[in-house]
């Protein structure tokens, strides 16, 4: 598994079943660049448990607006289409793993 880049038309379909982790980011955001490889590595580690997606907030302002995102990176966990948790800012891999796991 790896992190799949998606845009708003695919969003609802992507999160509708199971546990999905969505990383909202932007190309100009330093902490997002640092978080990307951490998420990539975590998606391998948690393959089969959660699906990982990445979304550019500049390309998808509608979704960013919908979740009231004021700061990025913003990582949200969805369970069967419902947002169950969020995490703002960079976090090291062990902490990010714990964050996803407690929402499984």
């Amino acid at each position: 598994m790896s992190v799949k880049k998606i845009d708003s038309p695919e969003f609802q379909d992507a999160i509708k079943s199971g546990v999905s982790v969505v990383d909202f980011n932007a190309t100009w955001c330093g902490p997002c660049k640092m978080l990307a490889p951490v998420l990539e590595s975590l998606s391998e580690e948690m393959a089969g448990k959660a699906a990982f997606y990445a979304m550019d907030v500049d390309d998808n302002p509608d979704i960013a607006q919908q979740f009231g995102i004021a700061s990025i990176p913003y990582v949200a966990v969805f369970k069967d289409g419902q947002k169950v948790d969020e995490q703002v800012g960079f976090v090291p891999q062990p902490q990010l793993k714990a964050f996803v796991e407690r929402n499984l």
Partner: peptide, 16 residues
């Protein structure tokens, strides 16, 4: 409210 309306980095979050 950090990351939910409070930010420490104007260049990071300006575009939002």
């Amino acid at each position: 409210n950090l990351g939910r309306g409070v930010s420490y980095c104007a260049t990071c979050d300006a575009a939002l």
